[in-house]
Amino acid sequence: MNEKLFQHVNWDKMWEATVETLYMTGISTFYTFIFGLLLGVLLFLSSPGQLWKNKLVYGVTGAFVNIFRSIPFIILIILIIPFTTLLVGSMRGPEAAIPALVIGAAPFYARMVMIGLREIDRGVIEAAKSMGAKTSTIIFKVLLPESMPALLSGITVTAIALVGYTAMAGVIGAGGLGNLAYYEGFQRSRTDVMIVATVIILIIVFIIQFIGDVAVKKMDKR
């Protein structure tokens, strides 16, 4: 029955594409977390009334974040092709998708980091200052731990968005489930291939959400 229902599905290829999608999502989520956190913390600290309040840094960082957050992903991929080739040496394959994925997602995550940090009670930061804490201590021992649930739920949302982005990257040749669904499924009118690829993407998303929810619940002691 299996053979008939999914007669066009090549399970080996499907598995390979799944691994590629997981690979792209995993690596790009990792780098998005790092760069988004850096940007978000910088944005927060330089904002008015904060520890490093600085109109110039805040303005430049804010503009950078807003611009890259607003460019549609499919266009961003094409725009940064020269950068990608320089960095990866090729503009095809899963590796080549990663710079675009990170540049597209990190500013998005940076905003969420900033929102998370802004929710920390100012009094707690003041208390740390009143104990003689250095700014680095405040960042690593107050800001990050105190906003951890927000940082985790933010990265969960971002990772899920990244799964969607990898599918888009697939269309221009990055591989993965999106690539498979489009070329093998849509263009050849093989609905079963599209459906299977979509269901696998859904499962990946559900698993990410589940892991994120569990992690947030475990961290949140409020």
């Binding site: 009094g123 107050v142 731990p145 105190e146 961290m219």
Partner: peptide
């Protein structure tokens, strides 16, 4: 050192 009206403890 200082203590505060709203305690300002780290909830984490």
């Amino acid at each position: 050192s200082m203590i505060f009206q709203h305690f300002n403890l780290l909830w984490s």
